[in-house]
Design a protein around this nucleic acid. Sequence first.
DNA 1: AGTCTTAACTTGAAGCTTCAACTCATCCTA
DNA 2: TAGGATGAGTTGAAGCTTCAAGTTAAGACT
Lengths: 157, 157
Amino acid sequence: MSTDDPRWLDEDERRAWLGLAHLSIQLPAALDAQLRRDADIGHFDYMLMAWLSEAEGRTLAMSEMAELSRSSLSRLSHAMKRLEARGWVTRCPDPSNGRVTLATLTEAGYAKVVESAPGHLDAVRSLVFDQLSEAEVTQLEAIAGKICGTITHQSTT
Amino acid sequence: MSTDDPRWLDEDERRAWLGLAHLSIQLPAALDAQLRRDADIGHFDYMLMAWLSEAEGRTLAMSEMAELSRSSLSRLSHAMKRLEARGWVTRCPDPSNGRVTLATLTEAGYAKVVESAPGHLDAVRSLVFDQLSEAEVTQLEAIAGKICGTITHQSTT
DNA sequence: AGTCTTAACTTGAAGCTTCAACTCATCCTA
DNA sequence: TAGGATGAGTTGAAGCTTCAAGTTAAGACT
């Protein structure tokens, strides 16, 4: 793939790259820290429960969750084992398709989400959206969409 | 911090948030995968060597590297131990200040960076900058800068 | 029916990160 | 100048993620 004379980044690109690199380290770390400190749960695990809480019957198939959370099935499976051990979700085989596993949020799990959502939302607001203009929010969506779209395409190709 | 009636995200914000969340999962994973596959090294470890390769005398203090890479000293220390074991860096106490440790890239380490840089650069180009207009590059820098600035401030405050 | 392949997970080990505790050096202050 | 505080870094254990291998179920082919 690489040529003998790669096109290096120009000054603008370099600065943007540094910014993006820092962003993708610091933002997840900050959100994770908030949730761990205030709710004793990691960001990934929280997101899983949040997805479940919004789903029909608070239930989703493992593979649906893997897509939503952009994670491997393996990572998801380990995470769900943790959540199951804490009594926040249950898993059972889908009666209509034996190789699908359905995960359901328990009452306790739902309560946990409801309890920790405001603090998390505050963090997202104050770190991200309070800092950006409306225009920047739109730009951010476009930029993220383009990059993620490319990644998804490249790995399937 | 959280009020009883948090301000939820509106539709635009929600989409932007989803995009940003996916971006900060997928982009690091994609870059890490490229480097691991093509150069048998992780993205974080690679970045450390890249920083060193650009520094005066290919040498930096551990704490300088921690700032540059936005990582904890602990994470850095473990990573440097890996790189040291592979013969790519050396560490020694700063003669002029006994509590500073200076890390230096070895010849082998420099060669490793030179060898793997083009492939990594290609990935960054094709995933990020080939997808964005000049305007978007500028926007990205501004957006990332604002968010990271806030995070840095909040944790020091 | 019997075998082959693929899909949807699960598991255990290895690797990386985080956290808390510790060491050692330097600075400050009385 | 002794004693405490702070700064820089290391270490080991615990937790999380990734990777490779294994399991079970559903189609597909013969």
